[in-house]
């Protein structure tokens, strides 16, 4: 009996699976990855010696003070970078949400795409060339990339919020600024704040790395100590980065819980 219905053979699926396998195999062949050497006995002892050099971390008071000031610098870079990004994002999101006509919308979206598509580290490298080594370059780098990300998120929140409240206020004679504050901000404000805090959290982590290209903060210290093979000191900096990350996660979790409880 051939009355049992059968699915039609899917030629595309078979070809797609084969193509994936071929791509993975070709990648291995192309990169020539020495996985075998990684797990050889000699490699393992080398690795053990390398990792061992990181312990114990350098806890001398002078160096701890330096790491503490680097941590503060990292926090400050992320905070100022995020605040600047929020301001720029608001001003770009308004035209990007189509509030000033279609040409302005297209222009603002182009700017946002550009800001967003260049990663923070690339912006940092460019800003170091432009503004010199130091935290200012880090602030600019974070502000530029984050403005691109937040601008798009803010614009989407604007476009997805219902239009009635603002229209109702325009109908009773309110000006455009008042109508926006009373009719749109209550709808998008909380979402904007949540996006901004989330990006700040990411920027704290990113600010710790930006120092690798000379843009200040913990990364600058880490890069310096690693290039001099001061593993013990590098280990202190890495622990500080880890601590900062855990702190940010904890605080943000507490904050979110508090906000949820408040509602």
């Amino acid at each position: 009996m051939d009355s049992i219905p059968r699915p039609r053979p899917c030629l595309t699926c078979v070809l797609g699976a084969l193509a994936c396998f071929a791509a993975v195999w070709a990648s291995f062949a192309w990169l020539d990855l020495p996985f075998g050497e990684l797990f050889a006995a000699s490699a393992l002892t080398d690795m053990g010696r390398f990792v061992g050099a990181f312990f114990p971390p350098d806890l001398s008071p002078a160096f701890l003070a330096k790491v503490a000031s680097g941590t503060l610098e990292t926090l400050a870079i992320s905070a100022i970078g995020t605040v600047l990004a929020v301001v720029a994002a608001v001003f770009l999101a308004l035209p990007a949400a189509g509030r000033f006509g279609l040409p302005a919308r297209a222009g603002a979206r182009l700017v946002l795409n550009f800001l967003r598509s260049v990663p923070e580290l690339v912006w940092a490298t460019l800003m170091v060339l432009l503004a010199g080594l130091g935290p200012f370059a880090g602030v600019l780098a974070l502000a530029l990339h984050t403005a691109g990300v937040l601008g798009r998120l803010f614009a989407e929140a604007l476009e997805n919020s219902p239009a009635e409240p603002e229209a109702a206020l325009r109908e009773l004679g309110a000006g455009p600024v008042s109508a926006f504050c009373y009719g749109v901000m209550p709808l998008v404000g909380a979402q904007w704040l949540a996006y901004a805090l989330y990006r700040w959290e990411m920027n704290i982590r990113m600010a710790a790395i930006l120092g690798f290209v000379g843009a200040g903060g913990l990364g600058t210290i880490l890069y310096y100590e690693l290039s001099l093979f001061h593993e013990a000191r590098a280990s202190t900096v890495i622990i500080a980065m880890l601590g900062l990350s855990v702190l940010v996660d904890t605080v943000s979790a507490l904050f979110r819980r508090g906000r949820l409880a408040a509602q």
Binding site: E164, P165, A168, R170, L172
Partner: peptide, 18 residues
Amino acid sequence: LRARIGMVHQSSAIPPRQ
């Protein structure tokens, strides 16, 4: 003139978080 005319909207015209 619009300020002198009042429109009672459906409740959707009031932002929930206000």
